[in-house]
Amino acid sequence: MSASGQAADEALLRLVREDLRGFAGYASARTHDLRGEVWLNANENPWANPADAGGGSRRYPEPQPPALREALARLYSCRQEQLLVGRGSDEAIDLLVRALCVPGRDAVLVTPPVFGMYAVSARLQDAPLLEVPLVDGEAGFEVDLEAVAQAAERSAAKLVFLCSPSNPTGGSVPLAGIAALAARLAGRALVVVDEAYGEFSDQPSATTLMDAHPNVAVLRTLSKAHALAAARIGVLVAAPALVRVLRACQAPYPVPTPCAELAVAALSDEALARTTARVAQLRGERARLQHALATLPGVRRVYPSDGNYLLVRFADAKTAFERLLAAGVVVRDQRAAPQLADALRITVGTPEQNDRVLAALDAKEAAA
């Protein structure tokens, strides 16, 4: 490693809790690369469960399945040593907060209204929570990056979470702004960009910033565009030195073998081509639904979105929510979220499902 690379690693590792910088974690039976024909080192059952036709589930899985890591590295254009695979993005969020934040001292910064797991993980770790609200303007909700930087500097935040595209508001954070924030907070904080909905956006991934800004980390998932929500495959792309620390803090066997095998199959060339086509179709439906919703009486505003959902303000959000439920359509009620007392979040569905949404909200059809 070059001197500059070593210095970057040392600066990044100073963000880790002092008591975890040399933490080795639990050494499981799969930690060491051992070879043999009779495996008697993990107290596994020698016979398969009667319901397990393939017999593979009697063995503990690889902690970080090699075939899956290889496929994910190709998908996200990064090196395998930059990847941490876990149980959805939620696990990576929790690991970051636990590994970097000393309880009661090191703060976590979020930009509400936003995905709630950042705040939940901070609460569980007793990490002070800093909130810099999104700004609702003509172009939609936007992050005030100057206010974020000032709040992070003033309160010694260790983690800054930027959701891009943001859930539930739909806006993306410009890469140039993320880069400037990371440069300003270098040596002070890790800037974590949550790109759970990145496939639905035209903006390049923030992983492209990581060579120049080692204190940028990116969250990705197979739950959304790849339609594998039940498999719970989440990914953190980060500097290898940080990935090693988080692996030591992670549970021994985070990725079940059936989930890993399904994910590898889903990342084949054929499956990826179909996923790409479906993402394109969803983006087209997003535009159609956005336009159609905006013409309905009782709809105050439909926000532009880079995700697979639309945030919609209503004159009477309660009635709109009830109409949709009566039509068998379940959407996300956002009325308890800050700045969203009149809003619902509607996931973009199939053309038929979207037509059903529009019919349920059309006052003329409801009256008929």
Rank of each mutant, 00 (worst) to 15 (best):
A3S: 08
A8K: 13
E10V: 07
A11N: 06
A11E: 12
V16A: 13
E18H: 04
E18G: 02
F23Q: 09
Y26G: 11
A29K: 11
L34C: 14
L34T: 14
R35D: 04
E37H: 09
A42W: 00
N45V: 15
A53Q: 14
A53I: 13
G56C: 10
R58P: 01
R58I: 00
R59V: 13
P65K: 00
E70W: 10
A71K: 07
Q80T: 12
V85F: 00
G86V: 01
D90Q: 08
L95N: 04
R98E: 10
V102I: 12
P103H: 09
R105D: 06
R105I: 10
V110H: 14
V110C: 13
V110L: 11
T111Y: 13
P113R: 04
M117A: 10
A122S: 10
P133Y: 10
L134Q: 15
V135I: 09
D136A: 15
G137Q: 09
A139M: 15
F141M: 02
V143Y: 07
D144M: 13
E146V: 06
E153A: 11
S155L: 10
K158I: 07
K158F: 06
V160W: 04
C163Y: 13
P165C: 02
S166Y: 07
S166N: 11
S172Y: 07
L175E: 10
G177D: 07
A179V: 06
L181M: 06
A189M: 04
A189D: 01
V191H: 03
D194W: 15
D194C: 15
E195V: 10
Y197L: 15
G198M: 15
G198S: 14
A212N: 11
H213D: 06
H213G: 06
N215S: 08
A217L: 08
V218P: 11
L219S: 03
L222Q: 02
K224M: 12
A229R: 06
A229C: 07
L236A: 00
L236R: 01
V237P: 01
A239L: 11
R244K: 05
V245G: 01
L246R: 10
R247M: 09
C249S: 06
P258Y: 07
P258E: 10
P258A: 08
C259A: 14
A260E: 00
A266N: 07
D269Q: 12
E270S: 12
L272W: 15
T276P: 08
R288E: 06
L293M: 04
L293A: 03
A294N: 04
P304D: 03
S305A: 15
G307F: 09
N308I: 07
Y309M: 05
L311D: 02
L311Y: 01
R313M: 09
F314A: 05
A317K: 13
A317L: 15
A320P: 05
A320N: 05
G328I: 00
V329H: 05
V331C: 05
R332C: 05
D333I: 00
A337L: 12
P338Q: 06
A341R: 15
A341M: 12
A343Y: 02
T350P: 01
A363D: 04
K364E: 14
A366C: 13
A366K: 14
A368I: 01
